[in-house]
Design a protein around this nucleic acid. Structure first.
Lengths: 228, 228
DNA sequence: GCAAAAGTGTTGTGATTACACCCATGT
DNA sequence: ACATGGGTGTAATCACAACACTTTTGC
């Protein structure tokens, strides 16, 4: 952005492009990492599943646009979700219609809220990450794979697992989420201690109810993150 | 990118934006992590240092545009550099002239090549990361800070330090680069072993020449990375 | 009292650090 | 010979994992 100043003042001299945001909306449903998809009803890729997304408005920031799309698709009532920029895709060939630069975000929601979004009946479906074999439109399969990688990589350093759980949760719930993301079982005592030593959670003194056996203690997340 | 298909076919219905790439071109010069900057000669921010950048062409991918800007500013002769997408900035307020979405990249060059770029006399200057106190145009100070964070975070997992060194280097050179990036001294034997065990380097059998004292062995990087 | 899952104590292992030392080279 | 930095061995520390064990609840 330096030696192109003359161009910049002439609207026809720079190449205008459409900028969109695409959302990888994830949750852990019954031990499976799951993504929210939307069936396209127009070509190209009519009838194919794709990531929800939308154009960035003229006076709208990128994070702002992502948050708008998030609340419009998963119009959850005033609750919070993790929302983080993932990567920007801008290959000239990625959309056959026109030049589109797309800023991908990933969003994390508790399973209950994902289910609500699906139940709202706006054509949204949830699909386990393992079940989608190249059935996504555009380059969206690669975007989902990248989101999964990022999730795995940050899991131990950043308190993002809590965005996939309700406000109160047990250590077993938390471990299930970690195992779903990493795709492998974890040792229970080791996991417990790592979490308790992390400073991310605090015990509430409350306990589960309606359990068949001994009820587990409920914990609360006390860590901060990019929640919208 | 799903429910806006009708808009997408009408050029006037989507908000066109200019898309640029900005480069954080870094090297380690005399133990200091250093960034390549360019003095702006046009308002806004005339006379102020900024990151080199440029518009993304109509048929050009983002990585491609970044590589083009890299080779035009630091027109190094056929050598290789580390080039990696960093983050995308799109606040409506970030450029007072018009709506610009900028995809930031960071690039890593050996100190010698950075010096060549400066010597070429295209108005480029190098500045140590510690020395720039909010003297950058636009939101570029934040971009540089983010690049530094990313560099620190990936240093132990990804073989990017070698992009800051010539093809042959000593373990001491490598340690100096790590220390400059992390901003703290490292233990010599521990660092040695970590590097030798990493599988990223291999000894050449060659040795330094013209040293005052015992010459160190020269190593070569055998790891792959996103080099352009 | 028994089944099932919560929660804890103890031990072992691998990785990394810290410190001390030896080695090789040019003056 | 000696100063200087390259290079190596050994012990200590830490984090984490594995395992066995105790505890608590509902039926």
């Amino acid at each position: 952005m330096t030696q192109h100043d003359l161009q910049a003042y002439d609207p026809s001299a720079y190449p205008p492009m459409a900028v969109t945001v695409d959302l990888v909306l994830m949750s852990v449903v019954e031990g499976q990492l799951t993504v929210l998809l939307q069936r396209r009803d127009q070509p190209p890729f009519a009838g194919v599943q794709a990531l929800p997304g939308g154009f960035v408005g003229p006076a709208e920031g990128l994070d702002e646009a992502a948050a708008r799309v998030l609340s419009s698709k998963a119009g959850f009532g005033g609750k919070q979700a993790w929302l983080e920029q993932l990567y920007t895709f801008g290959s000239p060939a990625r959309d056959p219609r026109m030049r589109i630069v797309s800023v991908a975000y990933f969003a994390l929601l508790p399973a209950g809220e994902l289910a609500e979004a699906v139940a709202a009946g706006q054509g949204l479906v949830q699909m386990p990450l393992g079940a989608m074999e190249d059935v996504l439109a555009f380059d969206h399969a690669g975007i989902v794979a990248l989101a999964h990688e990022r999730l795995k990589g940050k899991l131990d350093y950043v308190p993002l697992a809590f965005a996939l759980l309700p406000a109160l949760f047990t250590l077993r719930d938390l471990q299930d989420v970690h195992e779903a993301i990493l795709g492998k079982p974890l040792n229970k005592p080791a996991f417990r201690r790592r979490m308790l030593d992390s400073g991310w959670i605090e015990p509430t003194g409350e306990r589960e109810v309606e359990t068949a056996f001994r009820p587990a203690e409920l914990y609360r997340c006390v860590a901060e993150g990019p929640r919208v």
